[in-house]
Amino acid sequence: EADPRLIESLSQMLSMGFSDEGGWLTRLLQTKNYDIGAALDTIQYSKHPPPL
């Protein structure tokens, strides 16, 4: 049985245009305790590393 928090967070992320191919988004949301903001921060950080 999927956690209702996961279903809600995942559906919101999917509606933003993200995909869960391979389950990466599910794993990220689980790691971030279903916090969409924290997940988005992680995605943003990985796409744009800080300048040295």
Rank of each mutant, 00 (worst) to 15 (best):
K47M: 09
D3P: 06
L10G: 01
L29W: 00
H48R: 14
R5F: 06
E8F: 09
N33T: 04
L40N: 02
G23D: 02
L29S: 03
R5L: 06
S15W: 04
P50M: 12
I43T: 05
I7C: 08
Q30P: 05
Q30V: 12
A39E: 02
R27H: 07
D41N: 10
K32Q: 11
L28G: 03
R5S: 07
D35S: 08
T42I: 08
D20V: 00
Y34L: 04
S11V: 06
L29T: 02
L28V: 08
L40A: 04
P51I: 12
F18C: 02
S15M: 14
D41E: 13
A39F: 00
Q44E: 12
D35K: 09
Y45C: 14
S46P: 12
S19M: 10
D3H: 06
A2T: 15
S15Q: 15
D41M: 07
F18R: 02
P51T: 14
I36T: 07
T31N: 06
P4Q: 08
F18Y: 15
S46M: 10
P49R: 11
L10Q: 06
I43N: 03
Y34M: 07
E8C: 05
Y45V: 15
S11A: 13
Y34I: 00
A39D: 04
D3A: 02
M13Q: 00
T31E: 10
G17D: 03
L29A: 01
I36D: 03
P51L: 10
R5D: 08
R27P: 07
F18I: 02
L14K: 14
S15E: 15
D41R: 11
L25N: 02
N33M: 06
L29F: 01
E1G: 09
T42G: 08
L52S: 13
D41F: 04
L14A: 10
L28P: 04
F18L: 07
R27F: 01
E21C: 06
A38V: 08
Q44F: 11
Q30M: 09
R27Q: 09
L29M: 05
M13T: 01
S46R: 14
P51F: 10
M16A: 05
P49H: 13
D41Q: 14
K32P: 02
P49M: 07
P50H: 11
S11Y: 03
A39M: 00
Y45H: 15
G37V: 10
E8T: 12
A38P: 03
L28R: 03
T42R: 06
L10A: 00
N33E: 10
Y34G: 05
H48I: 15
L52H: 15
P4D: 04
A39G: 02
Y34E: 03
L28W: 02
L14R: 09
D3R: 02
L25E: 04
K47A: 10
K47Q: 12
A39W: 00
G17A: 01
M16W: 07
A2V: 15
T42Y: 07
L10C: 01
D20H: 01
L40Y: 06
G22C: 06
K47I: 09
Q12T: 14
L29Q: 01
D20I: 00
T31D: 15
T31P: 02
S9R: 08
H48V: 14
P4C: 09
G22R: 07
D35L: 01
Q12V: 10
L6I: 09
S15H: 15
L25W: 12
S11G: 15
G23H: 07
L40E: 05
L10S: 02
T42F: 13
N33S: 08
G37R: 15
T26V: 02
R27E: 12
D20K: 00
L6F: 10
S9V: 10
A39N: 01
R5K: 13
M13C: 05
T31A: 13
S46G: 13
R27I: 07
A38C: 09
T42K: 06
L6P: 03
P51V: 09
P4E: 09
L29Y: 00
L29N: 02
G23L: 03
G17V: 01
I36R: 04
I7H: 09
T31I: 13
W24V: 08
G22P: 02
E1K: 15
L28D: 07
L40C: 06
A38L: 11
L6C: 02
K47E: 14
S11F: 02
D35A: 01
G22L: 01
H48E: 12
P51H: 14
L6T: 05
L14W: 06
D35P: 00
E21F: 04
N33P: 00
T31M: 13
T26S: 10
L29D: 03
G22W: 00
Q30R: 11
L6W: 00
T26A: 06
P49N: 12
K47F: 06
R5I: 03
A2Q: 14
P4K: 13
P51S: 12
N33A: 07
M16Q: 06
L25V: 08
L25T: 03
N33K: 12
D41V: 03
I7S: 12
P50N: 13
T26E: 03
K47V: 10
T42S: 14
T42A: 14
L25F: 01
Q30G: 05
L14P: 01
T26Y: 03
Y34K: 04
R27G: 08
H48L: 15
P49T: 13
K47D: 13
L14T: 15
G23A: 05
P50D: 12
Q44I: 07
I36A: 08
P50Q: 13
I7N: 12
G23V: 00
P4L: 09
G37P: 11
L29K: 02
F18D: 09
G22F: 01
Q44W: 08
I7Q: 11
D20T: 00
G17M: 00
M16V: 04
S15T: 14
Q12R: 11
K32I: 08
N33V: 02
D3T: 02
G22T: 06
P50V: 08
M16N: 07
L10R: 09
E1F: 04
S9N: 06
N33F: 01
M13K: 01
T42M: 08
E1Q: 00
F18K: 02
L40F: 05
H48Q: 15
A38D: 09
P51G: 13
M13A: 03
E8R: 13
G22N: 12
Q12H: 13
G37H: 14
A38F: 03
L10H: 04
E8K: 14
K32C: 10
S19Y: 10
T26F: 00
L40G: 04
S19V: 14
P4S: 12
W24S: 10
Q30K: 08
Q44C: 08
Q30A: 07
Y45T: 15
I36H: 06
S11Q: 14
H48F: 13
G22Y: 01
T42H: 15
P51Y: 14
Q12Y: 12
G22V: 01
A2M: 15
A2I: 14
Q12F: 11
D3L: 02
F18M: 07
P50I: 12
P50T: 11
S46H: 12
A39Q: 03
L52R: 09
S46I: 07
I36K: 05
P49C: 12
K32W: 04
L14M: 14
E8H: 10
P50R: 13
M13F: 05
G37N: 08
L14E: 12
S9G: 10
P49Q: 14
A39V: 14
L40P: 04
S11E: 11
K47N: 14
A2R: 11
L52Q: 12
D41W: 04
S46T: 13
L25S: 01
R5Y: 06
Q12A: 08
